[in-house]
Design a protein around this nucleic acid. Structure first.
Length: 528
RNA sequence: GGUCCCAUCGUCUAGCGGUUAGGACAUCAGAUUCUCAUUCUGGUAACACGGGUUCAAUUCCCGUUGGGACUGCCA
């Protein structure tokens, strides 16, 4: 601890008089009145671009924990990095959460008593806490320039020391009031740094709900609390102030925060505040195409990391969440297969059971979840999804395909009547439309490679009657086969290829019924 | 380089001293079907390595190797 600054100097250093005392803040944001065990969680993305899978993962956990414990889920926007901020990002986040089915109880766009929920609007709170630290000698203004710090870093690296502003490298750690005033009068804006009292020779125990207790060296870096550039807080300080005054009980965040875990624990202790529970989630990985190594999904390198990718391709959002749920809750899949639960939302998520190390994102398994999910949908729901997707993301062809909803419905209803034997060849809304494209004349590609048996085609045409029931129809196919001296299967294959251009299709009778007499006749005749 | 974490089939994992090491996806084979899909049956496939501890190690301890994350006035 160093000498505290005078109130007047604190105001000058901070660029204004702090608005609150700590007591006032405590009164303004009192502990929440919730039943025992209720978890208060938050999704706290920074608006720096698109919403990615990692975001969705932590959002899912926060939401689920709050939901299953009768707690509360917040959306906080961590917009303290003005340089990297992207204008539309908040809308993307809001929309992303909505389409994936996450509705916060409070937060940006949802209101609440513990706001503001934009960090950029919480300056008064951060500055008030910073003022307290300055007054107590637990923080100090630092006037190191970027160049000076670059220099320090270079020297540290060259000497094999850890980089950062700590100990002897923290030049202004014990700066006098006179020197502070000099810098101020020189027009400089300081960063506010933590006056760290940690000693790396000591170990501190940090408890993570997934991992258990970690032993790490104490932090001795005088990390930045308030940036000089815009007087906004750094992540560390915002985390401390926000999760305390928003009364977060469970901090769900990326595993990459492990490195600063000790620092955060120390800061809470320094304030005498109750430490929240921490849940550091494992990364979602992929195999790097260049190196062949497993690595965390990257925002810039991996298009499939972007949730927009899933939306554009028409992946059922529910199945993406189910897939993630399966990663988070081993045992969920089995419970679901046994029919014990209907969805991930019915299965208890236990932090202790969540994966400890990174998992490879498995598209094949996602496909399986998607197929299973789509197979459970009543045809009208399936149709609605496909229509909605086509209208928002589809190309012109897709839009034409969904124009006649009645026809689309009859196409998608094929082999959906028996719940035990529903076709599982639909994966995404986009792929669904591609899969059945031959039902539309403008997309139908006649197969001219196939060697048709003319006798079969002609023979069938002579007896074909649209109003025949399936047995009658099949009887006629068999009759044609006998007449032409071939197997019934060959008749069916001739018709199938003529009808669809493909050798693999759903039930031929259903296909012909949906196509209708006119198309059936046309498609056969063009090969005669 | 420093700090921290991790290590069971190709993938996601169950296991918490004694198991034929279980499941799911993927894959392969067979049955069913007018083709395909579905459905059903079956199969291939894993405890990274080396030391301990123990009557007994996949399981506990140590080391090695391998992998990952962090190391910013980014979060």
């Amino acid at each position: 601890m160093r000498n505290g600054l005078s109130k007047d100097l604190i105001a000058r250093v901070l660029g204004g008089t702090p608005k609150y005392t700590l007591d006032e803040l405590e009164a303004k944001y009192p502990p929440r009145q919730l039943p025992d065990g209720a978890m208060v969680t938050r999704f706290a993305p920074s608006p720096t671009g698109y919403m990615h899978l990692g975001n969705l993962l932590s959002c899912t956990i926060g939401y689920k924990l709050a939901q299953q414990s009768g707690g509360l889920f917040m959306l906080r926007i961590e917009d303290t990095d003005t340089k990297r901020e992207i204008k539309e990002a908040v809308d993307i986040i809001l929309k992303g959460m909505e389409v994936f089915g996450f509705k916060p109880d409070e937060g940006v766009g949802y209101g609440g008593e513990y706001g503001p929920y934009y960090q950029s609007q919480r300056k008064d709170i951060y500055h008030s806490v910073a003022a307290y630290l300055l007054e107590k000698g637990l923080a100090y203004p630092c006037f190191l320039t970027q160049e000076e710090m670059d220099d320090i870093r270079a020297k540290q690296s060259a000497a094999g020391f850890g980089t950062g502003i700590y100990g002897e490298f923290a030049r202004d750690r014990d700066i006098s009031e006179e020197d502070i005033i000099k810098h101020l009068e020189n027009g400089e804006t300081p960063t506010i740094r933590l006056y760290s009292t940690g000693n790396p020779d000591n170990r501190i125990y940090c408890k993570d709900l997934i991992q258990g207790t970690l032993s790490v060296p104490e932090n001795n870096e005088d990390i930045v609390l308030i940036k000089s550039t815009d007087r906004l807080p750094t992540y560390h300080f915002a985390h401390l102030c926000d999760d305390h005054f928003m009364r977060t009980t469970h901090v769900v965040r990326d595993r990459s925060y492990f490195g600063t875990f000790a620092l955060h624990v120390q800061m809470f202790r320094m304030m005498g505040w109750q430490l929240p529970n921490y849940i550091h989630i494992a990364t979602l990985d992929k195999i790097d195409e260049e190196t062949g190594n497993q690595r965390k999904m990257s925002k810039s390198k991996d298009p499939e990391n972007n949730l927009a990718f899933f939306l554009q391709k028409g992946w059922p959002t529910e199945s993406v969440v189910e897939y993630l749920g399966n990663i988070l809750a081993p045992g969920y899949e089995e419970a679901k297969l046994k029919g014990q639960v209907k969805s991930f939302w019915d299965y208890e998520l236990k932090p202790k059971k969540m994966p400890v190390s990174g998992s490879l994102f498995d598209m094949k398994k996602l496909e399986w979840w998607a197929k299973e999910y789509i197979a459970t949908l009543p045809v009208d729901v399936l149709v609605k999804h496909v229509v909605d997707w086509a209208n928002e993301y589809g190309n012109e062809d897709n839009k034409k395909q969904v124009a006649d909803v009645k026809y689309l419905t009859s196409v998608l209803a094929i082999e959906r009547d028996n719940p035990k034997r529903i076709r599982k060849d639909f994966i995404t809304w986009q792929q669904t439309l591609n899969e059945v494209s031959y039902f539309w004349d403008f997309l139908f590609v006649p197969n001219n490679e196939y060697t048709y048996n003319q006798d079969v085609l002609k023979g069938f045409l002579e007896t074909w009657n649209e109003s025949d029931d399936k047995d009658t129809w099949w009887g006629k196919v068999v009759a044609v086969a006998e007449k032409c001296g071939v197997k019934p299967g060959e008749v069916a294959m001739n018709l199938r290829v003529a009808m669809t251009g493909r050798t693999n299709t759903p039930d031929l009778y259903s296909v012909m019924q949906v196509l209708g007499d006119k198309r059936v006749q046309e498609r056969i005749r063009q090969h005669l």
